[in-house]
Nucleic acid binder design. Structure first.
Length: 551
RNA sequence: GGCCCGUUGGUGAAGUGGUUCAACACACAUGCCUUUCACGCAUGCAUUCAUGGGUUCAAAUCCCGUACGGGUCACCA
């Protein structure tokens, strides 16, 4: 029996040969330096922040080079694949506004001419190439059972040898075709392993775009390329797919570094051009003084839906990720206010190569506050309403009812060079402006803290004097504040802070204390935006009503 | 255990042999400004770059060892 016949016997259900596929997927017509890369998740659960990081990074590199960014689903592990995995991935990526040029567009459909983009639909392709290797005597069927493999490993462990199916342990490598055929005819299951041409005592160099030059021993393990179920292993699928899809760059987590020698070897054996690798360190979390990987189970901020539910702007998350990817991004943004991420040129060389960055929610909060502070009030309103429609329906109907009023509130101290930074997320808004709505303010047990002035009669006196004698809705801001000062003078408080500081004992208090009383009576809070604006928005009738609680 | 990678302040980091090299940002602290808060401004926060040696006139930067941390060694990706 020839090798070719043997290959056909081993993998009988192959429709096309490998050359057919080589011709099916022509070279992409792109600029020389265009980056073709992909997001290649396995549909075993929801993406987490680490996935978003590498996915977003790949997206940026593809876009900035006029390349291609595609979505390939790696569902060769049929056991772990979950229902609707693809659309779940697509939905969350869409939430973060990351889109693909090619690939799956829902659980069953796809766009692009380099597909199928779902590995389970590419069985024929993998087997065609596996057949090629068998024909060339570069791969062979292996019958080693789980038990046999365990035995080998135990022996290797007890004799302190390297683990794995290699050298003299790879005994199926030398099995005759006749024996293999007989065992298969007897119903034995088998996998296909590649005959590794590697020598452990020789060195291979990997030029990682992030980590630089990495030297390691050549791979000499006869890796499984086709599993018992006929589907490929990750290693084999990676080589075939990224070759046929003309991927130029593979951006992935650094847990893959140690497999890279193996991958390059598979490329070589298949006669494929190498792809470039960029291995990214994981995101870390500070857990009681020790660093550990950010965990989807333990850390809510690791999950992506968290940001949607909390109402943290996805743009802020991406801004933060951009600074993790290239730490000079932040300085660049400062120097180019108003620029967008897509204007920035990311550089692989500037990606941190250390053990991993701590994912810092405080930093994200800061970025988010800055981001939101620069938006227009109407934009903030739309975003908050959109968020509240799902996550805080009562607040949504309230701000819908008072749309213009709400926008005015959101606009206080906003469109100026140094705007207020009150909110880091949409869910902060109701907590910080609730008192502006009578529905939330009236008929409710409220607690007031007037700070320095505690005497009830005095509070009543300040409020009633102010509203009766001094407050006029028609006043502009300077006039308004001058009247506050007049109020202070009349009641024995210092209207001038310097005068008060120079001689505190000659006053009952100062203008800050008086303003605080008005502010707190109006809102219950001593921490609010500009008092003049609040008074104007609330209006005299409602001011009187709120003050009357103290009469 | 084998192999690989990493280690600069509370955090992210810049810096790869010497001209301010310990930037910048977050956080924190103090002060100023101010009707509160926020903003802003000012100042402070690593005499030292995990550690021990070595090379050099000169090292965070190059070399070797040690410690610690991470990854990997599946018919999972």
């Amino acid at each position: 029996m020839t090798n070719k016949e043997f290959a056909e016997f081993l993998l009988p259900d192959v429709e096309h040969d490998w050359e057919y596929y080589e011709n099916l997927y022509p070279e992409r017509n792109l600029d020389d330096n265009a980056i073709v890369t992909r997001y290649a998740p396995s549909p075993t659960g929801l993406p987490h922040m680490g996935n978003l990081l590498s996915g977003f990074m790949a997206y940026c590199f593809a876009k900035q080079s006029n390349g291609v960014y595609f979505l390939r689903i790696e569902d060769t592990d049929t056991e772990r694949t979950v229902e609707n995995g693809v659309s779940k991935i697509l939905d969350i990526m869409k939430d973060f506004d990351i889109t693909f040029d090619e690939g799956m567009i829902n659980d069953t459909d796809e766009v692009g001419s380099y597909g199928p983009y779902m590995q389970s639909k590419r069985k024929d392709i993998y087997q065609a190439y596996a057949r090629k290797l068998i024909e060339e005597d570069k791969a062979y069927p292996s019958f080693a059972s789980k038990e046999e493999l365990d035995e080998i490993r135990e022996f290797q462990e007890s004799t302190k040898q390297r683990l794995g199916y290699y050298g003299r342990y790879a005994k199926d490598r030398h099995m005759t075709k006749e024996e293999a055929i007989e065992r298969i005819n007897n119903g034995e299951k088998f996998v296909i392993r590649m005959k590794s041409p590697g020598d452990f005592f020789k060195t291979v160099i990997i030029n990682d775009l992030i980590k630089g030059k990495i030297e390691m021993p050549e791979n000499d393990i006869d890796e499984v390329i086709i599993k018992k179920d006929g589907l490929p292993t990750y290693h084999f699928a990676h080589a075939i797919d990224d070759h046929l899809m003309h991927t130029t760059h593979v951006i992935r987590g650094d847990e893959w570094v140690s497999s890279t020698a193996k991958h390059l070897q598979i490329f070589d054996v298949l006669g494929f051009k190498h792809v470039k690798y960029a291995h990214l360190a994981p995101l870390l979390k500070n857990d009681n003084g020790t660093k550990r990987k950010l965990s989807k189970r333990k850390d809510p901020e690791a999950g992506l839906v968290y940001y949607i539910e909390e109402g943290i702007p996805v743009e802020a998350v991406k801004l933060y990720l951009a600074t993790i990817i290239n730490s000079n991004f932040e300085a660049w943004l400062d120097a180019n206010p108003g620029a967008s991420i897509s204007d920035f040129k990311f550089d692989f060389k500037k990606v941190g190569s250390s053990g991993g960055a701590i994912y810092d929610m405080e930093k994200l909060t800061n970025i988010s506050k800055n981001y939101l502070s620069r938006l227009k009030a109407t934009d903030v309103y739309d975003r908050v309403l959109n968020w509240a429609n799902t996550y805080d329906k009562d607040f949504a109907s309230l701000i819908s009812k008072y749309k213009d009023y709400t926008i005015s509130i959101l606009n206080i101290e906003r469109e100026q060079k140094k705007p207020r930074k009150d909110f880091a997320k949409y869910s902060d808004v109701s907590n910080s402006i609730w008192y502006m709505y009578d529905e939330l303010f009236d008929n409710k047990e409220l607690s007031y803290d007037f700070k320095n002035i505690t005497d009830k009669e005095e509070i009543k006196n300040i409020l009633s004097t102010y509203i009766d004698k001094y407050y006029d809705e028609a006043d502009d801001k300077d006039t308004w504040f001058n009247k506050i000062k007049s109020l202070c003078d009349e009641l024995g408080y210092a209207s001038d802070m310097k005068a008060y500081k120079a001689n505190p004992d000659s006053f009952k208090g100062n203008v800050a204390d008086v303003s605080t009383v008005i502010r707190v009576a109006l809102t219950t809070s001593s921490m609010t935006p500009d008092l003049y604006e609040l008074l104007r928005l609330i209006g005299k009738t409602r001011i009187i009503k709120r003050f009357s609680r103290f009469y």
